[in-house]
Amino acid sequence: STGEEYIAVGDFTAQQVGDLTFKKGEILLVIEKKPDGWWIAKDAKGNEGLVPRTYLEPYS
């Protein structure tokens, strides 16, 4: 699937089932941008889950 690459600007630990845990500096592939501010993203290992958009910045 296609998506946009974003870099994590902080650590995030999953708070509920379906969230994706990530560390600062990780590159995430954003698959869907939901209007509530929680985006669906995939990490380098292929894990998929919800992430808070405030922790992400476009990666170029």
Rank of each mutant, 00 (worst) to 15 (best):
S1V: 06
S1G: 03
S1F: 12
S1N: 14
S1L: 06
S1W: 01
T2E: 10
T2I: 12
T2F: 09
G3V: 12
G3A: 07
G3P: 14
G3W: 13
E4A: 05
E4N: 10
E4R: 07
E4V: 06
E5R: 01
E5D: 05
Y6I: 01
Y6E: 01
Y6P: 00
Y6C: 03
Y6K: 01
Y6Q: 02
Y6R: 02
Y6V: 11
I7E: 02
I7F: 05
I7D: 01
I7Q: 06
I7Y: 06
A8M: 05
A8E: 00
A8S: 07
A8Q: 01
A8T: 08
V9H: 05
V9W: 01
V9S: 06
G10S: 08
G10Q: 15
G10A: 05
G10M: 10
G10K: 14
G10Y: 03
G10N: 12
G10F: 09
G10R: 14
D11A: 13
D11R: 05
D11W: 02
D11T: 08
D11G: 08
F12A: 14
F12Q: 14
F12R: 15
F12E: 01
F12L: 11
T13D: 06
T13S: 04
T13P: 13
A14W: 03
A14H: 13
A14M: 08
A14Q: 09
A14S: 13
A14I: 03
Q15L: 08
Q15W: 02
Q15H: 14
Q15I: 07
Q15N: 15
Q16R: 14
Q16V: 05
Q16T: 11
Q16H: 11
Q16E: 14
Q16S: 15
V17F: 12
V17N: 02
V17Y: 03
G18Q: 14
G18V: 09
G18N: 05
G18A: 13
G18S: 10
G18P: 13
D19I: 15
D19F: 15
D19A: 15
D19L: 13
L20N: 01
L20E: 00
L20D: 00
L20V: 03
L20G: 01
L20S: 01
T21D: 10
T21R: 12
T21C: 07
T21K: 10
F22E: 00
F22L: 11
F22Q: 01
F22A: 12
K23H: 10
K23S: 08
K24E: 12
K24N: 14
K24Q: 06
G25L: 03
G25A: 04
G25I: 00
G25W: 02
G25E: 11
E26N: 07
E26M: 08
E26R: 04
E26S: 10
E26H: 11
E26L: 02
I27C: 13
I27W: 09
I27Q: 07
I27N: 05
I27H: 06
I27R: 11
I27E: 07
L28F: 14
L28T: 01
L28H: 01
L29Y: 10
L29F: 07
L29S: 13
L29Q: 09
L29A: 09
L29K: 05
V30I: 13
V30N: 01
V30K: 01
V30Y: 01
V30P: 03
I31W: 07
I31F: 12
I31Y: 07
I31T: 08
I31P: 02
I31C: 11
E32V: 06
E32G: 10
E32W: 03
E32F: 06
E32Q: 09
E32H: 08
E32A: 09
K33T: 07
K33Y: 03
K33A: 04
K33S: 04
K34R: 09
K34N: 11
K34P: 09
K34M: 11
K34A: 04
P35F: 04
P35E: 09
P35W: 04
D36C: 06
D36S: 12
D36W: 02
D36I: 10
D36N: 08
D36T: 13
D36Q: 02
G37M: 10
G37C: 11
G37Q: 14
G37H: 09
W38A: 15
W38Y: 15
W38S: 15
W39S: 04
W39V: 14
W39N: 02
W39E: 00
W39M: 15
W39A: 14
I40A: 05
I40P: 11
I40W: 07
I40T: 11
A41R: 00
A41L: 08
A41M: 13
A41V: 12
A41P: 00
K42Q: 12
K42I: 04
K42G: 05
K42D: 03
D43V: 01
D43Y: 00
D43H: 06
D43R: 05
A44K: 08
A44W: 08
A44S: 12
A44F: 10
A44T: 06
A44L: 09
A44Q: 10
A44E: 12
K45T: 09
K45H: 13
K45I: 05
G46R: 08
G46M: 11
G46N: 06
G46C: 05
G46L: 07
G46S: 11
N47D: 13
N47L: 10
N47K: 10
N47I: 12
E48S: 05
E48A: 03
E48W: 03
E48K: 11
E48P: 12
G49Y: 01
G49H: 02
G49F: 02
G49E: 00
G49A: 03
L50C: 14
L50Y: 07
L50F: 05
L50G: 14
L50W: 03
V51M: 02
V51F: 01
V51H: 00
P52L: 14
P52C: 14
P52T: 11
P52S: 15
R53M: 05
R53L: 05
R53H: 12
R53W: 02
R53Q: 14
R53I: 11
T54M: 13
T54Y: 07
T54L: 07
T54Q: 14
Y55S: 14
Y55C: 15
Y55Q: 15
Y55W: 12
L56R: 00
L56C: 06
L56V: 07
L56T: 03
E57C: 02
E57F: 01
E57L: 02
E57N: 03
P58S: 09
P58M: 07
P58R: 09
Y59D: 14
Y59S: 14
Y59H: 11
Y59T: 09
Y59M: 09
S60H: 05
S60N: 06
S60Q: 11
